[in-house]
Design a binder for these strands. Structure first.
Length: 850
RNA sequence: GCGGGCGUGGUGGAACGGUAGACACAGGAGACUUAAAAUCUCUAGGCCGAAAGGCCAUGCCGGUUCGAAUCCGGCCGCCCGUACCA
């Protein structure tokens, strides 16, 4: 008998699949198509165990769909542009291109041994000119459709690295890399007009039934729709006539006590130029950090400009105009009216600067008393207006706001407007390793899109990273070109695109990855949409929102069919793979982290070789600095791919984190070896049939088919695996004849095959299965075999389980009732009386109420 | 602050409103073995009991129901997301 050797069989079957070409996706009208996609990886250098879990989930779906008669597209590629490649180049003197492609090679080499059912012929990296050239072509289409524009925008500028930084890269006001004080600079940047789609992107969320509610909610909050009133205060003798404000609480207008403007408001900027005291204040106000912490603790600062405005409903009522550090220029109009009585932030501000606090309403039945904090009624709370203007009707929530808007409009004070929080998407990056923006700056023609026949605009290879800044800017010749419009000498744009652009349409490109247009409509129409998209929750907002925008923009440009405006039919967000941290403390009480192999586990405690006990911090995110990273390559060498695949799915529901433990991996490996052994034994066995045992085994088999299938369909992989363990136990203990057992074992192999494809092939082969298990039809549960002839009914007395009876499954309710009433335990409980109620749920349970 | 989620044995976790704890890890007992590994068998929520059996148990309090881990209300705790958004 041969023993289970993962290394041998995995190489063997991978070669067999490769030779049979069964994972290559080809359009066909014979079968329904199914497109399953996992979020593609960044080529950081090595695959992570999290990748293994992510792609295994996708692979289970892909293989299951293949077995259930679908024409499956399951591709893989690399999100290959981005900063780490440039940072590596700066650190080690290499070239981003070389670094990236080497990493891709390494990672493909690490992924292939996992035996994923991927169509590798469709693979691409976003840094391939064939890919980013098509992206440039689309960018030009977007310009034509008015989906892209240029405007000045304030950016975080790192004066040492000479680059724009994302907000996340600014730490305590300093560049994350250089440590230099970050400046706010105004630069001309390219923007996608995603805000044109705010309403649509919000409304369409409702139709995404197979997306997690959580993700839809996060997107809705991000888009941030609000209904309010925009109106102007007229200025009494100031440098401007009016100050426009926006409010979502027009019903509190009669409680206004000041007007606040942002330090970046045009009026503030004008005053800043004219008055030194204003300039000093604005400089101070702008300093504040952007982190949540900084905002939490930041002091509310105000500066009384001396300017006064009139209240729109009472011209004798004058309000002071403050410049305040908490007012954002890029929301609403950059100016607000403050109502301290009903807004906590305004309350604090008013208290600090001794401004009046005028309530508009009080809780019904309450007295109008001095407030110690802002009174913000709950939505359901009834209030009584003490200073209303829209009649005396008591209205709260949206109704109150709408009434106030109507009233203001009717009296000529502003108009109701809907605002969105969603800003246009700034895509310009002053980096080398990204997709060049395909436009040319011409002295006479201005900014001109490049001609499509000149695409791709390739990144030059001869660049250096020994000095900071964008190498494209200082390249001796790259910038120089002819104006596509007039032919005169002109200069190329040196900004490249945000890497989120690259990942916003790759799913569409997979449908025709080698085409010389961005997509081929026929292919896109066939393969799109992605039927199942799988990835991390960390992309819940940006990547998915950008992709939804891109799909719409691509549709407008004729690159995607109408139905693909929502490109992902179903989304699943998987949990992380975590690992315990083993920690001790050094003499200075600083934490010291130990590798798992240094720690011996006994009775749930961990000990070092020298006997010291370590503190175990369970379920921590894997981190190199905490020494708790497991390397998939090592795991595959040690246990094989099937074990790794089985384990990452087995212990936790897919949406939750799973903790990697050596013991768990060991158990998975044992189980696979056991299945192999059972099959190998069966291949040599020859036991005569045994009718009763055979029937019992086959019934268990059909039940297992049913349950495992349901589990896979509903992303309950852990539940499916538990059922497979159970069925393996049943099979191992069964006294059935060899024929029945072989059938059961082959079925077991099939049901396991999405998770452990290699082992399953070997079992299939040993037990005489025809062809590859990968192309075999999924087993069908026989409904008749799912119903047992006799069922055991628990008998509850007053809701507590007291006894049970065995009855034929089809016994009429009345007969069951008779039997139950005759049961010893029931007779005893009734004590000669009649039950108050008798509930029989056929096939389930009986409850006697006495 | 706002929004969402979660809370079940020593551990990870099962459980269409219907026998709570499937399956697995760790634990205990045993078989095989010179021994170990491997494998196999049994056991296993807590308390009382020799056993039969009983009582208590899904964060806490209440409600709906013949019946609640599951539905509803309130509280406590943890996790995630998000925010000077007017």
């Amino acid at each position: 008998m041969t023993r289970y050797s993962a290394g041998e069989i995995e190489a063997k079957w991978q070669a067999a699949w490769e030779q049979a070409g069964i994972f290559k996706a080809v359009r066909s009208d014979d079968k329904p198509k199914y497109y399953v996609l996992e979020m593609f990886p960044y080529p950081s250098g090595r695959i992570h165990i999290g990748h293994v879990r992510n792609y295994t989930m996708g692979d289970v779906i892909a293989r299951y769909k293949m077995a259930t008669g679908h024409n499956v597209l399951h591709p893989m590629g690399f999100d290959a542009f981005g900063m780490p490649a440039e940072n590596a180049a700066m650190a080690s003197g290499g070239h981003p291109k070389e670094w990236t492609y080497n990493n891709i090679d390494t990672m493909v080499g690490q992924m292939k041994p996992l035996g994923f059912a991927l169509d590798w012929t469709r693979m691409f990296a976003t840094c391939d000119p064939e890919y980013y050239g098509q992206q440039q072509s689309m960018f030009i289409d977007f310009i034509e459709k008015g989906l892209v524009y240029r405007k000045n925008a304030v950016v975080n500028w790192d004066p040492v690295d000479m680059t724009v930084l994302a907000n996340e890269q600014v730490i305590d006001g300093k560049g994350w890399r250089s440590g230099a004080d970050v400046e706010r600079r105004e630069l001309t940047q390219w923007f996608f007009k995603i805000s044109d789609f705010s309403e649509e992107l919000l409304d369409a969320l409702d139709g995404l039934d197979d997306w997690p509610a959580k993700v839809k909610l996060m997107q809705a909050n991000w888009i941030g729709k609000s209904r309010g009133l925009q109106f102007a205060f007229s200025v009494i003798d100031g440098p401007t006539d009016r100050i426009e404000v926006y409010t979502t609480r027009p019903d509190t207008l009669m409680g206004a006590s000041f007007v606040g403007i942002s330090p970046d408001h045009p009026l503030a900027k004008q005053l800043e130029r004219e008055r030194e005291d204003v300039a000093a204040f604005c400089a101070e106000a702008r300093k504040g950090g952007t982190t949540a912490e900084a905002i939490e603790t930041a002091e509310k600062l105000g500066f009384d400009t001396g300017i006064r405005v009139r209240h729109p409903f009472d011209t004798s009522w004058e309000l002071p105009v403050y410049i305040a550090n908490f007012i954002l220029m890029d929301y609403g109009t950059g100016a607000i009216f403050g109502c301290p009585a009903h807004d906590q932030r305004d309350f604090e501000f008013a208290t600090k600067y001794d401004l009046p606090i005028t309530p508009v309403f009080v809780a019904e039945g309450a007295e109008e008393a001095a407030l110690t904090e802002a009174y913000v009624p709950l939505k359901t709370e009834k209030v009584r207006y003490v200073r209303g203007f829209a009649g005396d009707e008591v209205q709260t929530g949206d109704e109150g706001v709408n009434t106030a808007v109507d009233f203001c409009e009717a009296n000529g004070v502003g108009q109701g407007v809907t605002k969105f929080r969603l800003r246009d998407w700034g895509l310009s990056r002053q980096r080398y390793w990204g997709c060049p923006i395909p436009v040319v700056h011409c002295d006479t023609c201005g900014v001109v899109p490049e001609k499509k026949e000149n695409l791709p605009i390739r990144l030059p290879d001869d660049v250096t990273f020994d000095v900071p800044g964008n190498p494209l800017d200082r390249h001796p010749t790259w910038r120089q070109c002819a104006c596509p419009s007039c032919g005169a000498d002109a200069l190329r744009e040196t900004d490249t695109m945000d890497t989120f652009v690259d990942s916003s349409w790759y799913f569409a490109r997979f449908t025709a990855p080698r085409a010389d247009t961005p997509t081929v409509l026929e292919d896109a129409d066939y393969w799109m949409n992605v039927d199942q998209y799988i990835g991390g929750i960390e992309h819940a907002i940006l990547h998915l929102l950008y992709s939804r925008f891109f799909a719409r923009a691509m549709h407008l440009c004729g690159h995607l069919p109408e139905k693909s405006k929502e490109p992902f039919n179903a989304l699943f967000t998987q949990g992380m793979v975590t690992h315990a941290i083993y920690q001790t403390r050094d003499e200075n009480d600083r934490p010291v982290y130990h590798y798992p192999e240094e720690v011996e586990l006994r009775d749930g405690k961990g000990f070092l070789k020298d006997g010291r006990e370590v503190t175990i911090i369970p379920s921590a995110k894997m981190s190199k600095s905490k020494n708790n990273v497991v390397d998939p390559v090592q795991i595959i060498q040690q246990y094989g791919a099937d074990t790794a695949r089985w384990f990452v799915l087995s212990d936790s529901p897919p949406e939750r984190d799973v903790e990697w433990t050596a013991a768990g991996a060991e158990a998975a490996a044992k189980h696979l070896a056991r299945v192999y052994r059972i099959a190998a034994d069966l291949a040599e066995a020859n036991d005569a049939p045994n009718a009763a045992e055979d029937d019992a085994l086959l019934r268990a088999m059909h039940k297992c088919i049913h349950e495992v299938t349901q589990g896979i369909e509903s992303f309950g992989f852990n539940a499916s695996i538990a059922k497979l363990y159970g069925f393996t136990n049943t099979l191992a203990k069964s006294k059935a004849g060899t024929m029945a057992k072989v059938l059961a074992a082959r079925t077991l192999a099939q049901l396991m095959s999405p998770m452990t494809p290699h082992l399953s092939e070997s079992v299939w082969e040993m037990l005489g299965g025809e062809g590859l298990i990968a192309t075999a039809d999924w087993p069908q549960a026989d409904e008749a075999m799912l119903v047992d002839d006799t069922v055991t009914l628990p008998i509850q007395i007053n809701g507590k389980r007291r006894a049970e009876i065995s009855v034929p499954a089809d016994m009429p309710k009345e007969e069951v009732e008779k039997l139950v009433l005759a049961h010893d335990a029931v007779v005893k409980a009734l004590d000669g009386g009649q039950p108050k109620k008798l509930i029989v749920v056929p096939g389930r349970i009986v409850n006697v109420v006495v």
